[in-house]
Design a protein around this nucleic acid. Structure first.
Lengths: 195, 195
DNA sequence: GGGAGCATGTAACGGGTTACATGATTGG
DNA sequence: CCAATCATGTAACCCGTTACATGCTCCC
């Protein structure tokens, strides 16, 4: 509100926080009031494809942190007679912070820990057939993930607010699809060594 | 030695260890006697492309752990008058353990933490042009990594012992090449949203 | 002489996980 | 009524990092 739509209005006092915290704030930045439980599920259906899925217990901690920094506010919703849940919403300060994050904070280096390629790298210690079978199984899961990402992407693109998260999911679909193809190539490459 | 070449001779008492420890043992499994310092550089030139590069300080800890478990032995090499270095070698027990690891221990789930896609996912909070510029820069580094992996792969494939690690590096080259292409696609996709 | 690389470690910290504890609601 | 799911948290633990400390050797 109050004349703030200039993109140079970047918050000068955005705290240094781990990417995890930004990710949780990012989920809130879509606008809904969400409980820790909701956030966990959102994370599993989008973040998990290209980032990671935080554990339940951590999310509650992050939410408390965000509230302490005034980047989010919470209130208790009475859902039933003897049952309640605490929902969180992003604040104006939170919006300013996340804009600073998006525009001026350097992205962390991309982390890839590919345990299957680690296995290939050390394949002289084990049995090649067993390794290829493991790779084949992994290839199948990659294809499943591609399909899951595609399904979620369709859901996201329907709503204007989820446009970009939909694009991230399209990227994920391509990623897992390419991954499956690369594993196919790898299996062929290993078999040709075997002869 | 002594009649052990049957692949069913799997060590029944292989300890549960984090993948990092296996990776260090894996480096030793190539046969050379190496110092912590050597291992760090090996890791940077191969492991780092598809797994990760452990910090200096951690490697020394892992080596001590391996020696305590009798999976490796160390001796002090006198390199100069007043200078020495401790080199580690894999033991027979270490070979048995790593074979068990390679063949029967389930690979950890693949970890991907893609900070740039996280940015895309939350792009409604920031400036699209800035984001595309960041992506373009990342695309360039991906291409550089592809080239670096290719160079190391060439070096590895010359020696018989490094055959599989060479294949892992070929995989890495493809990975970073595909990654660059996907980022190219992504930039196009974002630009088309912009209009 | 001085800087880059070789070489080995310690201490403190923190991010993130698993396991555990608790209890209400919903649906078969 | 029992299992699954909703819902929120605490405690312990450990992997891995950064920062720091130390000192040698090689080469310009």
């Amino acid at each position: 509100m109050a004349d703030a739509d200039d993109s140079t209005t970047l918050d000068p006092v955005t705290p240094e926080m781990p990417a995890t915290t930004w990710a949780v704030l990012g989920i809130l930045s879509f606008g809904s009031a969400l409980s820790g439980y909701d956030i966990k599920r959102w994370a599993e259906q989008s973040l998990a494809f290209f980032y990671w899925a935080p554990s339940q217990s951590q999310i509650y901690g992050e939410l408390r942190r965000l509230e302490q920094l005034d980047l989010a506010v919470s209130r208790v919703e009475q859902t039933h007679a003897a049952k309640s849940r605490r929902v969180y919403e992003i604040t104006e300060a939170g919006r300013r912070s996340i804009r600073t994050w998006a525009d001026v904070i350097e992205p962390d280096p991309v982390v890839l820990k590919h345990s299957h390629i680690l296995r290939v790298w050390a394949a002289h210690n084990g049995d090649l057939d067993r390794l290829c079978a493991q790779l084949e199984a992994y290839r199948a899961t990659a294809l499943e993930r591609a399909a899951a990402a595609a399904a979620h992407a369709l859901g996201a693109e329907r709503e204007e607010a989820w446009r970009f998260s939909g694009i991230a999911l399209e990227w994920s679909e391509r990623f897992y699809h390419d991954e499956a193809e690369r594993i196919g190539w790898l299996i062929g490459r290993l078999r040709e060594q075997q002869r």
